[in-house]
Amino acid sequence: MIAKTRDRTLKLARDTLTIEAAALHTMRDRLEGADADALVLAVDLLHSCKGRIVVSGIGKSGHIARKIAATFASTGSPAFFVHPAEASHGDLGMVTRDDVFVALSNSGETDELLTIVPIVKRTGAKLIALTGAPNSSLAKLADAHLDTSVEKEACPLNLAPTTSTTAALAMGDALAVALLDARGFQAEDFQRSHPGGRLGRKQLMHVSEVMRSFDETPKIAISASLQDALIEMTAKRMGMVVTLDKANKVAGIFTDGDLRRLLEKSTNLDGLTLEKAITAAPRTIPPELLAEEAIEMMEKHRINHLVVTDPAGALLGALNLHDLFAAKVI
C-alpha cells in the first residue's frame, strides 16, 4: 500500500472512531431530564413484562435489533427478534398482550413498522421505540421513546448507517445492563445460559469432571526410592508423582520441576531418599469445587498441578494445566 493511500485509510478509520465515540458521549449526556425519565420508564416496562421482549427492525436496524434481542435473552430476559415484514404476514401472531415490543428505526417512519405497531398496541403490548427522530410517527406511538439521534454518520458520504446503528446498539446494551441489574441477574445465571462456550465450561464444570482418576494418578509410597518415583512419573506422564504415607494419605508431591532443581545442585542423586526430595503438604483441592476455582488456585500459587483429596486427606486423583486445556476449560 502506497503512503498516500495508507495515510487516508488510517485517517478514515480514526475519523470513524472519533465520530462514533462523540455520538455516544452526546447520547449519554442526553440522559438528563425527559430522556432520563424515558430510559427509566423503558426499563420499568421491561422489568414488569410478564411475557417476552419482542425486538423488531428492518435493514441495518434489523441487524442491530437481532443483537439486542440476543443480549436480552442471554442476560435473563426472554426475548426474540421478529422481522416487521414477516410480522405483517402472520408472524405478528407471536406477539401477545403480555409482551413488550421494542422497535428500532433511525427515521422513525419505517413503513413496515408503522404497519404493525398500531396492531401491536391494540393487543395491549407496551411499545418502546429507539429512533433518531423524537418527533417521528413511531416515537409518538411509543409508551417510552429513547432518542438515539446522531449529528452525522461516520460514512464520508453521510449515507451508510454507521454512527446511527452504533448509537442504537449502545442504547440496547444500556437497556439490557440496567434490566439485568433490576432483575438481580447474577454470574451463576449467566453461566446457565452459556453452557456451550469456554466460559460456561469453566464456571459450570467441577474438578471431579476434569481430574485424573485415582488409578490414572501417579502415586507411590513415601518410603519408595527416588528411582521408583521417576519410573511411576514417566509411566503415567503427568509430570509429577504423589507420595502417600502409611495410611494412604497424601504426604507430598514430587514434580519434574523438583527433579530439575535437584540436578542443578548435583547430578549425583545416589543416596537421596524420596522423602527428602518431595514438596510436603502440596496444594490440594476437593472434587466438588468448580474448575474455575482450580484455575484461580493454580494462578495464585503459580503451580501446574493440584492433588484432589477427600476431607480426610486421602488421594482421589489429580489434575494439571494440560487436563484443563484438554477439557477446553482454559
Rank of each mutant, 00 (worst) to 15 (best):
A229S: 14
E264F: 07
P287D: 02
Q191K: 10
L175G: 07
A174V: 14
V329K: 04
R30K: 14
P195N: 14
H145L: 04
L159G: 13
A291D: 03
G200Y: 05
T165Y: 07
L46S: 09
S77N: 09
D147V: 07
I19N: 03
A167W: 00
V150M: 11
I2A: 10
M205R: 13
L10V: 15
T309V: 15
I220H: 01
I253Y: 03
T165V: 12
L138S: 09
D258C: 12
S56F: 05
D147T: 11
I285R: 07
L138P: 03
T71K: 09
K121S: 14
R28I: 05
D228M: 10
T309Q: 02
H206C: 06
L315P: 00
L262Q: 11
G132R: 06
R237V: 01
L290M: 12
R283L: 15
M171P: 00
G197Q: 03
E216V: 05
T309P: 01
T162E: 00
F254S: 08
A36W: 01
L204T: 06
G172I: 07
R14E: 11
V54L: 04
A327F: 02
I68A: 10
T115Q: 13
E292T: 09
Q191T: 15
T18F: 04
I231R: 12
L175K: 04
A160W: 03
A85K: 06
D99L: 06
D323N: 10
I68C: 08
A327T: 02
R6H: 11
K328N: 07
G59P: 03
T96V: 06
T16H: 00
A224D: 10
V242H: 02
V43K: 02
A73D: 02
G196N: 01
S136W: 00
L46M: 13
S208C: 13
E275S: 14
E32Y: 04
T243R: 07
A247S: 14
E296T: 15
M211N: 05
D173K: 05
A42M: 04
E232H: 09
V308R: 09
G252L: 08
L17W: 05
D111A: 15
L104S: 13
A291S: 14
T234N: 15
L199S: 08
R192T: 11
T18Q: 11
M171Y: 06
T284G: 11
G184K: 15
V207W: 01
R201G: 00
I2G: 15
T123C: 06
G132N: 09
H322C: 00
M298S: 07
R183I: 11
M240G: 05
K121E: 07
D245G: 12
L157V: 14
T255K: 08
D15N: 14
R260D: 00
P195H: 13
L272A: 12
G313F: 08
E288A: 07
S223V: 09
A176F: 02
A160E: 01
S88Q: 10
V329D: 01
V54M: 06
R212P: 02
T162G: 08
Q186A: 15
L269Y: 08
A36T: 10
P286D: 02
T243G: 05
G51N: 10
H206G: 06
